[in-house]
Amino acid sequence: MSGTLDKLKLSLSRTKDSILGRITRVVKRRRIDDDLLEEIEQILIEADVGVKATTRLIDRIRETAKERNLSEGADVVTLLKDEIATILIKEDGQLFSDEDIKPVVWIITGVNGVGKTTTIGKLATQFAGEGKKVIIGACDTFRAAAIDQIAIWAERSGVDIIRSQEGADPAAVAFDAASAAKAREADILLLDTAGRLHTKSNLMEELKKVRRVVQKAAPEATIYSKLIIDGNTGQNALAQTSVFMEAIGCDGLIITKLDGTAKGGVVIAVAEELGVQVDFIGLGEGIDDLQRFDSREFAEALFT
């Protein structure tokens, strides 16, 4: 576990540098005033925390400082830690519940290029490693060679794959995959879907159909919709999440590519505004770099 935490800290050290490291430097020997708060606002916005979440954070800090008669710049760090911790630290939702009925189906969705196929490959490997019987449904029948890509991952992780031709109806593949998962008594079915911008209503309808069809093929199965967000995404992550939520629900987020330079902020923004649980975060290209999101660890890594 401590190894995980170290990796997380290492990956987030750049993030930390942009959020708390910078804030700590800024507040030294300063008093809390509008100028200081404005500089902190800048740091938060530059970390993709977003205008709304940042404004609320700054307002609360201003109020609390006033209430408690705090004036030292360094106090801001403590206040901010508390505020961010309140947003992030909640009892993490479980990935699976005892009430789940197999096959548990994960419909993996997201806009183009967020890393859906790669993430499914990693998830399949991890779940299979835990001794679960995993089946992958290759429902991205649109993007060139997407089926080949996921098939390579299925082979690597040694799990079954249900696939069709490029250009086939994704719902038909989903139906076959769900039927197969049921017949073969799989523990979990991972459905890879084509990337789609949330603004394309017909493609969002297609996604709803995939969900309906899965329900039809395996009526008892527990279905989860998981949304993948690219960690580099700015405020559009909020629009993406809310539209996908509305279309087929969102039982959890997977934030990928958090090993770059500016991160963390998008997690705070989404947690603040939409209260969706984060299931996994991607911290690199290796299979183990897709890690369970632990808000306490994450907040700790952000602050230490």
Binding site: I45, E46, A47, D48, V111, G113, D230, N232, T233, G234, Q235, N236, A237, G260, T261, A262, K263, G265, V266
Partner: peptide, 12 residues
Amino acid sequence: ADSMTGQDAVNV
């Protein structure tokens, strides 16, 4: 460059 990129677009 992805047009949905956030503040980090600058660093990239």
